[in-house]
């Protein structure tokens, strides 16, 4: 079942002579539960694509359909609600709120939705992320790997339809990086969550079901590495 489809996405920054075309007529679709890696050199438009898919940026042209909804046709408020319910975003620099402890950062999107958090689920996520003994710490009191695990916990807690990860291991050492990828894959498999990951690391990209290569805002290659749902 198709969960995500983008059609003729273009993104132009600036105007006139100084304008930069970050994305140029990008179209592809992703099946539910699929693990897709997006690779490409720096400045190729990977992060722009991810931000547009995550609804934090808007395309200049084209549309993004998630679960049949054209997310950019939604107004700011509806898009925000859609984002917190359907999308889990993971960034290279974790983007945690420095004033919230581990637990609070994890349940934040849920709380923003005005819902009561489920303590059992929180305990489960914290445990899965290996943060049980750090749950009352602020991000500044955590290592990079721990912070990224909080960030993943936050993305997973709400059972989003899609998880979008932007270089999640880019700021981590190999051991921590592998651990993060393991957690993401585990979630992809056990929860059947769709996972799109941007990475420079070829070994991580090759663990995906499908790999999309981008250069200068164009998709240059879209190859299936293994059948969806297949294990390594």
């Amino acid at each position: 079942m198709e969960i995500l489809r983008c059609e003729h996405l273009s993104k132009i920054y600036g105007s006139g002579d100084t304008s930069v075309r970050a994305l140029d007529d990008v179209s592809f679709s992703v099946e539910a539960g699929e693990f897709v890696s997006i690779v490409g050199p720096s400045g190729s438009g990977k992060s722009t694509l991810l931000h547009i898919l995550g609804g934090v940026d808007r395309p200049t042209e084209g549309r993004v359909m998630i679960g049949g909804t054209d997310i950019h046709s939604l107004n700011e408020n509806k898009l925000a609600v859609f984002r917190r319910r359907q999308i889990g975003l993971i960034y290279q620099f974790y983007n945690l709120l420095p004033v919230l402890n581990v637990d609070e950062n994890i349940v934040l999107p849920h709380l923003l939705d005005g819902r009561k958090y489920d303590q059992e689920r929180l305990d489960l996520v914290v445990e899965r992320m290996g943060l049980t003994d750090r749950r009352n710490n602020l991000p500044s009191q955590l290592s990079g790997g721990q912070q990224q695990r909080v960030s993943i916990g936050r993305a997973l807690y709400n059972h989003p339809a899609i998880i979008l990860a932007d270089e999640p291991t880019g700021n981590l050492d190999r051991k921590n990086g592998e651990e993060i990828v393991r957690l993401l894959k585990q979630s992809n498999r056990s929860q059947k969550q769709t996972l799109l990951i941007i990475t420079h690391d070829e070994s991580i990209a090759l663990q995906a079901d499908r790999m999309i290569s981008i250069e200068d805002g164009h998709i240059t290659r879209d190859e299936r590495i293994r059948v969806t749902g297949g294990g390594m």
Binding site: V56, N77, V81, F82, L89, V99, L108
Partner: peptide, 16 residues
Amino acid sequence: RQDIEVLYSVGMTKEQ
């Protein structure tokens, strides 16, 4: 500023 961006990215609305 960065906190605001994070909050928007995790789905905070303008009213919130």
